[in-house]
Design a binder for these strands. Structure first.
Lengths: 154, 154
DNA sequence: GGCAGATAAGTTGTGCGCAATGTAATTGTG
DNA sequence: CACAATTACATTGCGCACAACTTATCTGCC
């Protein structure tokens, strides 16, 4: 397979096609967060803050490092974001006793309760997307492979 | 098909699925710009600046409004971005004579010449994506429909 | 035990991305 | 013609996103 004259990565008009795909990715991502925005406004959250809350709603507490690994964000992004979530009274940060380098992020009662108020959002997004469940599933799968390939290329 | 008990937009575990798709979109978009970054660093450009240059390389001059419509960006983003491109000596901004509200963005010789230095980037991206041309094409098409649906839902 | 290197967070600086606002020019309408 | 509404662009403010750097803690190795 490695000696095929045309590789199985795109060769045919790759520049234009690829440029369109990357721009389509960039546009779709912006469009999705734009649809989230008015819904998240009612919770007082931004989209990245919502992502952090989703992780914490699943399992809690989480260290800053764990949050960063789940979401692909570094401490330069997470530290001020978590400080804002703490100022909103949704989370608490405490130094770990076992490892004083670590900071554990806990949900407050208010933070845990916010989960219920957010429950309608995913369905609203799915409706706005206008794709079938099968298409969404395939899109997710393709994007996953794309992201993995892009990461491994570095 | 429309009278099926399950609508053709996702119903089955829509929350989790949709959340995964939106996060996959967010992650893939970040991964793509991360792959662009070292290549664009050599041109002294960021990804949004590169997008503006791509538009100008196609046709020139363009007003700020036209650039904004092509890229889905407003003047709050474009004004400072164009100011930085101008500081780099890649573009010039001139008030239109016919309509003094408009600002036309022109490529400088240096800005036009940069196109050649960027010619290898799209192929490098296509290689890093690790998807076949057919998959890339289908991804672009699906993302296009998704973006359109998300925009029209507002 | 002591110290070099690794690890975890935080800080700083730059550049988007977007809402809200301001200013100037143009267009539409009576 | 006058003037209200619209349009084009710029500015301000806030929150990511990330590179680079700093500080504190821990681990491995001698």
């Amino acid at each position: 397979m490695t000696d095929a004259p045309i590789s199985n990565t795109a060769r045919l008009d790759a520049p234009r096609l690829n440029r369109q795909v990357c721009f389509a990715l960039y546009s779709a991502s912006k469009a999705a967060t734009a649809v989230y925005r008015p819904m998240l406004d009612e919770l007082g959250l931004t989209y990245p803050q919502y992502l952090v809350m989703l992780v914490l709603w699943e399992d809690q507490p989480r260290s800053v490092r764990e949050l960063g690994e789940e979401l692909g964000l570094d401490s330069g992004t997470l530290s001020p974001l978590l400080k804002r979530l703490e100022a909103l009274g949704l989370v608490e940060r405490r130094r770990s006793a076992e490892d004083e380098r670590r900071v554990e992020v806990f949900l407050t009662d208010s933070g845990a309760a916010l989960s219920a108020k957010s429950s309608a959002i995913p369905q609203q997004l799915a409706d706005a997307a206008g794709l079938s469940a099968a298409e969404l599933d395939q899109l997710r799968e393709t994007l996953g492979r794309l992201t993995a390939a892009l990461h491994s290329s570095r």
